[in-house]
Design a protein around this nucleic acid. Structure first.
Lengths: 114, 114
DNA sequence: AAATCATTTCGTAATTTTGCGAAATATAAA
DNA sequence: TTTATATTTCGCAAAATTACGAAATGATTT
């Protein structure tokens, strides 16, 4: 009964970023905010998305919690912008994961299988 | 009461790929399989991951369902390999999403806000 | 034919996610 | 001060995710 290993923080962080991206609403928001230099009001987004206001609010909250966006209060609106710094970090993390095909110097079933 | 728009298939596919990556076990498996040229047996993976066999099996199933891996039966083992074709597709999709900062030719609150 | 082995499927439980409408909040306008 | 506006939080329900152990599957070996 071998000890169960832990996940590396890299793997955990990758999964966390992927999770933040794992819903169409959140993809849409990030795509939009990262493409534009300006920001977005929740009230505008809601007309472009097939969900209600409160649901959108939750998705925004999740993205905020994941650090990928930030909201500036601009009463009575809240202006959402991409969090450039964290977005770049997340991108780098994913990018490395996707393109780190530095060939097989370790294998799997060579090591312990019949 | 404006009509609610649909998601584009691009957005839906991105979310689907991200969802497939949204768990540490699945990140680990994909990282491993994409890095190596060879393949992996479920029995080997289970020793490297903090989950039981049946749980691992479910994650493998999800990745298979998402088209990112494939299993070759090699009795009594099942050899899992990356599905190169779909993995490349998924990578391209994500990569474009991440690096498609082709500047803001559309905006948001210029269009309909006070 | 019985035993063994790797893996999956089943049944179940706990937790998380997603979604909505109603109510709350906070500010600005009348 | 009342009214209107943008947004969030609350309460709830339905569905999906994650996890486990036990049982089932399918092939091989004894």
């Amino acid at each position: 009964m071998a000890d169960k290993p832990q996940f590396t923080t890299e793997v955990l962080n990758l999964a966390k970023v992927a999770k933040a991206l794992s819903h169409p609403v959140r993809i849409y928001i990030l795509q939009k905010l990262s493409k534009m230099n300006s920001c977005c009001y929740s009230g505008n987004l809601v007309d472009e998305l097939p969900v209600g206001r409160s649901t959108l609010s939750q998705h925004l909250k999740e993205l905020k919690f994941a650090g990928l966006i930030q909201g500036e209060i601009n009463p009575p609106y809240i202006k959402y912008c991409i969090n450039r710094k964290n977005w770049e970090k997340a991108k780098k993390l994913l990018d490395d994961f996707l393109n780190d095909n530095q060939s097989a110097d370790f294998s799997c079933y060579e090591t312990k299988t019949v």
